[in-house]
Every structure is written in C-alpha cells, then in structure tokens.
Amino acid sequence: MSAAAAVAPATASTTPITGAVVRDLSYAEAIREAMAIALERDPRVVLMGEDIGVYGGAFQVTGDLVHRFGPDRVMDTPISELGGAGVAVGAALTGLRPIFEFQFSDFATLAMEQIVNQAAKLRFMLGGAVSVPVVMRFPAGSGTGAAAQHSQSLEAWFGHVPGLKVVQPATPHDAKGLLLAAVHDPDPVMIFEHKLLYKTKGPVPEGHYTVPIGEAAVCRPGRDVTVVASAVMVPRALDAATQLAADGIDAEVIDLRTIRPLDRETLIASVAKTTRLVCVYEGVKTLGVGAEVSALIAESEAFDYLDAPIVRVGGAEVPIPYSPELEKAAVPQTADIAAAVRRVVRGAV
C-alpha cells in the first residue's frame, strides 16, 4: 500500500487553491475533509448512511462529523439500503445534496432499484425537467478477509448505466477532489472507494478544490506499454512499472479515476504512443471495466497503432474467497501485472 503515497497528483487536471498548504492525509481523512467542506459551504448538503453518526462510519470515514454538524446533517439511517438510497434520491430530486454512504458496496445490490431505475433515469424519463444531484459512496474491493459478500468490485455494473457517473479515486488527493466535484455535479455520482486505500497517505491541499469527473491521470509516463488501472490497482501497477523498469520496460501507468464517462482522449493518446495496452482491474475480468477500455481502444483511431494484442488482467471468475492466499489469488497482484506486461512487450501473446 505504501506505493499509493507515491502516486503523484495530476496537477494538470486539478484546480487546487494557489498556494494552498499541502499536508499528508490518509484517503479516509481526505474524504472526511471533503465532506466537511461540502457541509460548511452548502446548507443543502446532508450525509446519510448506516452508522455514520456517533459510530463514525463502518470505516471511520465520517468520523467526528456528527459532532461538528449535528445529527440533522449527518443522519444515521436504519439498515434499509433500498429505502435509504431512495430517500437520498428523492431528497436530491427536490433540492438537497445528499451524500449517501453504503457500508459496503456489496449492499448496493439491495438498492439497485433506486440507483438504476430511479436516480439514473429520472432526468431522462422526465425529459430533462429534473436532476438528481445525489452522491453515493461505496467502500469496495477485496483484501480485508471479509469474504464474498463484503469484498466485491461492482463498479462495472454501475458503469453500464447511462445517467450515472462512476468514479474510483486511487489517491487521497483525488478522493477529496472527486468527492467535491461529485457534490457540485448535477447528476448522480457513484464513488467507489477501495477499502485497502483508506489508510494510505498522500499529499492533499487544504481547502476546496475539485478533480474533474471524466479525466484520467497519467501517473507514470512511459514509452513501451500503457497500463490502465484504477483504485488499488493503481499503486500495484506503479509497483509493477518500477520492477519492469529494471528490465528495460518503460510502462506508462494511467489512473482512470473516472470509469463513466471514460477519458477517451487520454487513453487513445497513450496507446497510440506506446502501441500496447494492458488493462488492470480488480472486478471480475469478464465484462469488466478493462473489457470496456480495451473495446474503446479497439474501436478507436488508436487501433492502427496497436502492435500487440490487448491484454486484460482482471479478477478471477470466482466469488472473493476468505482464506488469505485464495483471496490474493482471486485479484490481480503486482506480480501478475508485471508478468502480463512482460508478455505483451516481449511479443509472447
């Protein structure tokens, strides 16, 4: 995880306050700071979710916010994911700016109706007469030993739904900037926060800034191959890139940051330059985010620059297992990424 701190914030696409003090914060602290700023700046903002009040949230992300902003603005909801998500949707529809926290992204399965049928579609179905500026936060991903119902990476499900925006910050800097961007966004934004990242630290400017939704970051420029990753796969891809550099392979690592809408321009420009593409994602490989990225490239003008088959390194076709070695085997690790890149660059696929 230490590598996450090494992910340089992509200055080109962020708008920090000039001269803002930059501290090292954890990913969870950065999110909390973003929520505090949103609550301070806009009385319409309310936080909702299970145990986000005095308990501080299942992953201590809301922390002490209830003491600073009171229970009317940091609202504990009953264990009612469908209802809770729907209340957030209805509140957003009528003028509030709710930030709804799921305890685990897996529990979104209980709320899919409200997210997919209502939040995503209301604006369109009503001919543009309404908007649903709701933000939903999903602690996601494996690696904590929480097994099959608390470890999934379901972002691709949401990425499949027109009307939703889906972001997956990999660094504390982006976690804060994307959350603030999400709060200002007039449309529903789903934020997938990888649980293994919560404790990782990185530079975060003080005060208000946003990271634009829909912009990927080139977090390591390279010549030989484009490695597209998101969330916790970003530090892993960067670690792999460091190993590969010792073999003379110069990998460009792109942090998607947003998976809907995808940043076509950045992806196409990178692959046209490097001529090779490896997509890394924790979600199940079949029909996953990397599948979409590879299809995007195959359909794009970058196609004519491809000099090797596109390779996806995705999650195994299995529910996330409990036992630590099995759990590791089910999702891409640094060595898997490095091996795949080597095969692609050396013409072994």
Partner: peptide
C-alpha cells in the same frame, strides 16, 4: 415528481422529498 414504472419505486422518493421539505 413523476409516474413510476417500478411498483413501490416512488415510495422512498416521496420520503426523500418530504425530508427536503
């Protein structure tokens, strides 16, 4: 706030609208 094609779909939304009010 809209007719709704999902049985029960409008219920939580109504509660949310009431929360806003």
């Amino acid at each position: 706030l809209g007719a709704n094609g999902i049985v029960g779909g409008g219920l939580p939304i109504a509660v949310g609208a009431a929360l806003t009010a």
